[in-house]
Amino acid sequence: MSGPVTTSVLFDAPGPRARLRNNALTLLALIGIAAIAYLVYLRFDEKHQWEGRIWEPFTESATWTGYIIPGLLGTLKAAGLSAVFALVFGSVFGLARLSDHRWIRVSAGAVVEVFRSIPLLLLIFFLFFLAPSVFGGGDYTLIALVAGLTLYNGSVLAEVVRAGVLAVPKGQSEAAYAIGFRKNQVMRLVLLPQAVTAMMPAIVSQLVVLLKDTALGYIIAYVDLLNYGFRVLPARFFGSLIPAAIVIGVIYVGLNMTLSALATWLERRSRRSRRTSVKPIPATADIGE
């Protein structure tokens, strides 16, 4: 009697009275949702948000090729670069935290813990203002954004890498040492291949967070999807803010849900996998911004 509760067993198969109550609740819920939808409709109407004029730009291909797609590319560029750098940063520091040398372990641990606890926007602002005073004038929006995302998400990924390697059963490395492998062979040939499979779902979940975080670029005026949607488009097509927000919102949610679905699929696959002795490690509790 100690299996976990799944939502279906929180309540019984309904009897006649419960069925009546559920139907009443369903009806009430539907009325409530309809009422909210109607209030939103009324408010839109009052503020002239249903005028075809403000929705029209989104049916024209020029809006997409000229504004939305360049914005999306800006977002994807920042996300792609940061993802690659963060993975490198995460692997290096994650493995450094497992080093046999105390000074490497401790200093890597300090770096990871510090960057994890700095509010990301403060870090990006800092880098954004630091860059010109070190490298001279220029446009540092992309660099500041990518550097901030890399340092923060890389530190989170370092914890994932460390947890992944630690999750490989001790017998694996003992057996590898027993047949005469050296330290880096044990890591490279035995621990990492198994750990990577177990880490994959958590890594992909963190990439969702990273992709969401690229929207911070809006605040330092990096030309990403959010900037096009909230600054450029409403300025070009006066009054189109709400339609623009809906369009870019759908794009963000679509991208992230696709990545999340990939993470779930990977987790299920790695749970079944016989190529690793490690159960998938849980995703970080990071909520992104």
Partner: peptide, 8 residues
């Protein structure tokens, strides 16, 4: 909501 950036 959880798949939308907070900035948005």
């Amino acid at each position: 909501v959880r798949n939308t950036p907070l900035t948005l």
